[in-house]
Design a protein around this nucleic acid. Structure first.
Length: 637
RNA sequence: GCCGGCUUAGCUCAAUGGCAGAGCAACUGACUUGUAAUCAGUAGGUUGUAGGUUCAAGUCCUAUAGCCGGCUCCA
């Protein structure tokens, strides 16, 4: 007797071994039809899996992540199968499901063009309709290698060779196509009701630039045609939020061909930027930071001492002054260290928090540039905290809380990663271990979930990274907290302890926004250009209905300016509908429509970007409403 | 940096190898207008740049720059 416990706690009993698919059928035909995979004792498996012992079972459908991934994984095999049918000489690499679809990497000796993509997609649709059932089989290692060698699939051979000893080596066959694969797969390709190839991109074999670049085909698949349409519409909508497009349309910033990676901020962008910076200063003053400003260009000597020359030279710009070698700073830390070093410090002063809105330049490779998100010159909202070792945990915790409180103001969701020692780094293993453990301790104390990003730390220390999402779901590192035992050593920093002896301080390097540029890029996409009133470059636009109201409008404009509200008037000889449309398109939070009635009553008619016509109110009521929104930083998303 | 694609007026986009165009924006004029686009007119271009093929190149070829999507890398 086999006892199978379902999700709802119900227990089914069977006399003989049975497939998960059959169990689904016994529960109901609806579930059977919708079923894509099975979660057996917590593991996602094929529906074809034979259950021969007591276990828990959950039938996974489209709404389950495991169900979606399984369907898309099979879709990637359909893609590979189609490619093999059309171009038998193409070599197969890997093809997993990813967040919104799947990809498969191929080694083809010809470029896969959009036209070829269309042909492949047609073939895929055929395969889907053929209703192929993936069949799983297992081979011992040597036979598996032999099998893939015979099929002339060198990448598969390499994959098998690198599988750990004792690992089961499984294959899936659907129709004439067989692929090395851990699974799981859906029971029939005809469950894929909508499939679409999206793009081709280069991708290094096994993600290393030392290896050959393969061609990666991205696609997505759904169980319903309408879901695919919805998804494509969603992607279209997301593209409208692209900060590069909105930056141009709303005249916030631009990047010109003359300065790739060097953004220009236009007047409206500078309003947003200046507000962010003054808010930053206000908060940091409260949190016990003082502010410094260090030079952009400093003698090359300093960068040898800091270790940047050895570990960061590739990313730096250099110049000469009076026959001496100088470097443009890629980081603010050495400057801050010189400030620290210029005075004696007592343990009583620690932790010493030196903030700096520092403009840094980094030579990023051209392919990495991306709007404001990845540039070659950016301002870090940096701070260097010098402290005693005993203060590490509290300080890191403090910075975590500071970052969290900042992101909450903007309504951001974030995730946290812990980046550990990279290959190219300096310092002893012991220092690195201590530093990494200190960060873990702080993360645990803060109760934060985090994922480990192996080998992605700074060359001088491990770091906690805060990632924010852009409009199409890519995440960007913004805030970071880096713990550093190396720089204090290199620069021979010290403080006088309670015992009157010299001691070595520890440093934290940290940013909240990350870079003002990147943060603004995220902000623009997050709000789709419709900034909350406190950040909006123009908060109120006054729209007289006819030129009879122009004088009244100008008077109100002055009075609003006196209240510290950013206002402008549209006195052009245009219809009111036209003026409103334009203000709306420019995402200005409030419009004041002024005609004969308002002039007569000395009132204002208010139109909100978000809620439309709010009707007439007194000038004072309007000012109070807007001021409250600004002062409380009220955000409607 | 690598792979693929793209680049035409300020913006969005047209133009079989055969006279470079439209809409919006700008400017001028008329309309004095009530909650998302009034009408008419004017101006705007060495088709990213440099070569080449051709009687003829926006269109084909080569190189190059920038951009877009990825890979790699990172705030």
């Amino acid at each position: 007797m086999i006892k199978i416990t379902l999700k709802d706690g119900k227990i089914l009993e069977f006399n003989d071994p049975i497939t998960a698919e059959e169990v689904a059928k016994s529960i109901g035909m609806g579930l059977y039809k919708a079923a894509l995979a099975a979660k057996i004792d917590g593991q996602v498996k094929d529906l074809m899996t034979v259950i021969d012992r007591d276990c828990s079972l959950e039938i996974l459908i489209w709404d389950d992540e495991g169900g979606r991934d399984t369907l898309r994984h099979t879709a990637s095999h359909v893609l590979a199968q189609a490619v093999k049918r059309l171009y038998p000489n193409v070599k197969l690499a890997i093809g997993p499901a990813i967040e919104n679809g799947f990809y498969y990497d191929f080694d083809a000796d010809f470029p896969i063009t959009p036209e070829i993509l269309e042909k492949i997609e047609k073939e895929m649709e055929k395969i889907v309709k053929e209703g192929l059932r993936p069949e799983r089989f297992v081979l011992p290692r040597e036979e598996a290698i032999k099998y893939m060698k015979e099929k002339n699939e060198p990448y598969k051979v390499e994959l098998i060779e690198d599988l750990p000893e004792g690992e089961e080596i499984s294959f899936y066959t659907q129709g004439e196509f067989t692929d090395l694969c851990a699974g799981p797969h859906i029971p029939n390709t005809d469950k894929i009701k909508a499939i679409k190839l999206l793009s081709v991109a280069g991708a290094y074999w096994r993600g290393s630039e030392k290896n050959k670049m393969l061609q990666r085909i991205y696609g997505t698949a759904f169980t319903k045609k309408s879901d695919l349409e919805n998804y494509l519409n969603m992607v279209e909508e997301a593209k409208k939020r692209d900060h590069r497009k909105l930056g141009r349309e709303l005249e916030l910033f631009a990047i010109h061909e003359e300065g790739p990676g060097f953004p220009f901020f236009y007047p409206k962008g500078m309003v947003v930027r200046n507000i962010l910076e003054s808010y930053w200063r206000e908060v940091h003053a409260k949190w016990g930071y003082s502010e410094i400003k260090t030079p952009i260009i400093l003698n090359e000597r300093l960068w040898h001492q800091s270790g940047h020359w050895d570990h960061y030279k590739e990313n730096m710009y250099f110049t000469q002054i009076d026959d001496q070698d100088y470097a443009v700073k890629p980081m603010n830390c050495p400057g801050a260290i010189l400030v620290y070093k210029s005075q004696m410090h007592s343990y009583r002063e620690l932790p010493l928090r030196l903030g700096e809105l520092g403009l840094v330049h980094r030579h990023e490779i051209s392919g990495a540039l991306h709007g404001l998100m990845r540039v070659r010159a950016f301002t870090q909202d940096d701070a260097h905290i010098f402290m005693m070792p005993s203060q590490i945990k509290d300080e890191v915790l403090g910075v975590i809380n500071l970052i969290d409180s900042f992101y909450k103001v903007f309504g951001f969701e974030y995730h946290v990663e812990l980046s550990t020692r990279p290959e190219d780094s300096m310092g002893s293993d012991e220092d690195w271990e201590n530093a990494t453990n200190a960060l873990i301790e702080a993360l645990n104390a803060a109760g934060l979930e985090y994922k480990i990003n192996e080998g992605d730390g700074a060359f001088y220390g491990p770091k906690i990274d805060f990632h924010l999402r852009d409009s199409i779901g890519r995440t960007w590192q913004c805030g970071t907290i880096q713990l550093d035992f190396q720089m204090p050593e290199r620069f021979d920093l010290h403080y006088t302890g309670e015992d009157g002896e010299k001691h070595r301080p520890v440093m934290i390097h940290r940013v909240v926004f990350g870079s003002i540029e990147r943060f603004m890029g995220i902000l623009i996409e997050h709000y789709a250009g419709a900034f909350p009133t406190w950040l909006a470059p123009v908060q109120v636009r006054i729209l007289p209905v006819t030129d009879r109201a122009n004088e009244y409008a100008k008077g109100l404009e002055e009075r609003l300016k006196e209240k510290g509200i950013r206002v402008e008037s549209d006195l052009r000889n245009e219809k009111i509908g036209y003026k409103i449309r334009e203000a709306q398109v420019q995402k200005i939070p409030y419009m004041l429509v002024l005609g004969d009635r308002e002039v007569e009553a000395g009132s204002v008619s208010v139109r909100s970007r978000r809620e439309g016509d709010l009707g007439q109110m007194s000038f004072d009521d309007f000012v109070n409403k807007v001021r409250e929104e600004i002062d409380k930083k009220i955000t409607y998303v």
